[in-house]
Amino acid sequence: MDPHFIILLGLVLAVLLIATGAAQLLKRRMGADDLTIQNLTARINAWWVMVAVMAIAFLAGTAGVVILFAICSFAALREFLTLTNTVVADHWALAAAVFVVLPLQYLAVGMGWYGFYSIFIPVYAFLLMPILSTLRGQSENFLIRVSEAQWALMIAVFCVSHVPALLSLTIPGYEGKNLFLIFFLIVVVQSSDVLQYVWGKLLGRRKIAPNLSPSKTLEGLIGGTLSASLLGAALFWITPFSVLQAFGLSLVVTLMGFFGGLVMSAIKRDRGVKDWGNLITGHGGFIDRLDSVIFSAPIFFHVVRFYWDLH
C-alpha cells in the first residue's frame, strides 16, 4: 500500500480524534442538553462514518470510488427532484434521468471516456429530456419544469461525477496516484467550510449575503478560504503541484465552494426549506454536505486537465 495513504489516513484520524475529544470536553462543561453541542457531536459522528466509507472506497480502487459517487449522485438527485415543480407529464423524462443518464454517466467516468462523459449530459440529456416531457402534451409551466429537471442533473450528476473523473487524468510522473487528487480536493473544500464557520464565529461581523445565508460573513470567507488554502499548500507533496500551485488551486476551489454554498442556499430559500434532506444526522441532506464540492469539482478537474494532463 502507498505509504502516503497510511500517513494521510493517520492525519485524518488524528484530526477526528481531537475533534471527538474536544466535543466530549465541551459536553462536560456545557451539559449534554446543549443544542449546539448535540449538533456538533452529530456532525463529528457523521464525519467518522464518511471517512470510513471514503477509506473503504479508496481501498477498493477506481470501481469503489466511482460507485460511491454514483450513490452520492443518486441521493443528491433524489433530494433535488423533491423540491422541483415537476408533474406527472415529466415522469418518463425523470425516470430516464435517474435510471439511464446517471448510470451511463458513471459508466463513462469509470471507463475514463472523457469524450463521452464531458458532453453526454449537457448535449444529449438536455435535448432529449424536454422531448420526453412534451410527449404528454402538457405545456403548463413547461420551461420551469424542464429547467428544474436539467439543473437537477447538472448539479447532482454532472458536477458530482467530476470528482471520480479525476481518476482518469494522465499526469506524467503521477501515475497511479490520482486518488490523492480526490483527497486533496475534498479535504481542502470541506475544511474550508469548517474553517469559514470557525472564523465567522470568532471574528464574523460583516454579513455577505444576509438574505441568502445569514451565517456567511466576510471575515469567515477570508479567514476560511485563506487558512484552507494554506492547508492545501501544505498538502502539495501528495499532488503533482508545487507549493504555490497547490495554494492557487486551493484558493480557486474554496472560492467556488463558497459561492456554490451561496447558490444552493438561494435555492433552499426559494423553496422554503432549511435543509435538502435528512439522510445524514446532523448534516441535513447529501447536497448540504456536497454543495461546495459540487461547484468546485468540475473547475478543479478542468484546470488540472488543461495544465497537467497529457491529452
Binding site: F74, L77, R78, E79, L81, T82, T86, V88, H91, L94, A95, V98, F99, G277, N278
Partner: peptide, 17 residues
C-alpha cells in the same frame, strides 16, 4: 409525496423524499 414517486399508471418509480 408518494403520489409523485409513483403516479397512477407509472411503471417506474421516481426517487423522491
Amino acid at each position: 409525496n408518494l403520489n409523485r414517486v409513483m403516479p397512477k399508471g407509472a411503471l417506474v418509480p421516481i426517487p423522491l423524499i
